[in-house]
Amino acid sequence: MNTNSELVDRDDPPLPAQTVRIPARGYAIDRRKVLIVAALLWAGFAVVAWMVLNGRTGAFDEWGLKLFRTGADFHAAGSEKLVEAVRDMTALGGVFLRNLFALAAVVALLFLRLRREAVLYALAVMAGWLVNSGLKLVVGRERPQIVPHLTSAGGESFPSGHSFSSAVVWIGMALAFATLSNRHSVRYTMVVAAMALAGMVAWSRVMLGVHFPSDVVAGWLAGSGWAFLSAALFYGAAKSAADSETARKLDPSSR
């Protein structure tokens, strides 16, 4: 663990109410641990992908799509307010909002003088788009037509892009900001909360009828796996970039 930081230690005396101490560099995430988690998540994705390619998810997919529907026409069970809430949730994984939050997170990390984390997070999000696009081309699954769609959707169905991208954005963000604390309980809480949020975004796609449950499970597993894998994969490059003279000149916190 990197202890070269100006963060307040638990044994330090309390700071005055108007004093804020910004870290020069956050604590490093344990790359061995994130690689283990990434391997487990990608193994889960491989299992789901194999099941989809071999037609083993039919009963699960139909059950999931019909779970929130009722009547002969399979209209949404529940009020219109519930449907709107589900649409709001799915928007957190949409192109506009997820990229807006990702950009805001990068700027915030830079102002917190966490250039390494800002670069690492930006690389994870940008490369994640390429990974997701490649996975969709490999399988080429069409979207479900079992129940009416409650929102517009296009492109390939497997894996769910909303599920993959929201996992990368929110879990990657949690990993980046978790470096502000040296307490494992704080780090784990942030990451687990982000995984839960990404999971809610993923399942909202099933509730809206635009993805099979196996699509979103695979997307969440792959996106989560990429968020953890990139934290280790790009660490060296991010550290070098953050320490460069160009990064120092562009750093808004140094002005």
Rank of each mutant, 00 (worst) to 15 (best):
P16A: 09
I29N: 04
V147I: 15
F68P: 07
G78Y: 02
A118C: 11
A193D: 00
R113P: 09
R255Y: 06
S152G: 14
V95F: 14
D11P: 01
Q18E: 12
E62L: 14
R255W: 06
P16S: 02
L150C: 14
T90S: 15
Q18D: 12
A46T: 03
V119T: 10
F101H: 03
A102E: 04
V83K: 13
D243R: 15
N182I: 03
R116M: 11
L120M: 12
R115F: 02
G44Q: 00
S244D: 14
M207I: 13
K239E: 15
A38W: 00
R143T: 10
G78V: 06
E6I: 06
K136Q: 12
S254Y: 05
F234M: 09
A49Y: 00
R32N: 07
G209H: 07
G219C: 08
L15G: 07
A227E: 01
I171F: 01
A85W: 11
F60H: 09
V106F: 06
I171Y: 01
A85Q: 08
V119N: 04
I171P: 01
E6C: 09
V131F: 12
S240K: 15
A202Y: 02
P159F: 07
S166H: 02
G161I: 10
G219A: 07
R10F: 11
A178H: 00
S79D: 09
S165N: 15
R255M: 09
N132E: 15
L114D: 10
M89F: 03
M200P: 02
F68C: 11
F101Q: 05
I36T: 06
L150M: 15
G140V: 05
V210E: 09
R25L: 08
K66H: 14
V210G: 13
R69M: 14
E62S: 15
S253V: 10
V210H: 09
A124G: 10
L229N: 01
G155E: 08
F45E: 00
W170K: 00
G71I: 12
H149S: 12
S163R: 03
S165I: 04
G26C: 05
S5R: 13
F74V: 10
V106N: 07
A167V: 04
S79P: 04
L35F: 03
P213F: 05
G128P: 11
E6N: 13
I36L: 07
K66T: 15
V47E: 03
P13I: 06
Y27A: 13
E62Q: 15
A102I: 06
A194C: 00
M173E: 01
A238M: 11
M200C: 12
A153M: 06
R10D: 12
L229F: 11
G58S: 15
V192S: 00
A76I: 14
S230L: 06
N2S: 14
A124W: 02
Y235P: 03
V201M: 09
V138A: 13
W50N: 02
F212I: 07
V20N: 05
A49M: 05
R187S: 07
W203L: 14
G94Y: 04
G93E: 08
P16L: 07
H184V: 11
L114S: 10
D215V: 06
V210R: 09
W170C: 01
F96V: 15
A193R: 00
G223E: 04
L233P: 10
N182D: 14
A167N: 03
F111A: 08
A196S: 02
G26Y: 03
S185P: 01
A76T: 13
P13D: 05
G225V: 00
L123S: 09
V34T: 13
A77W: 11
E142T: 12
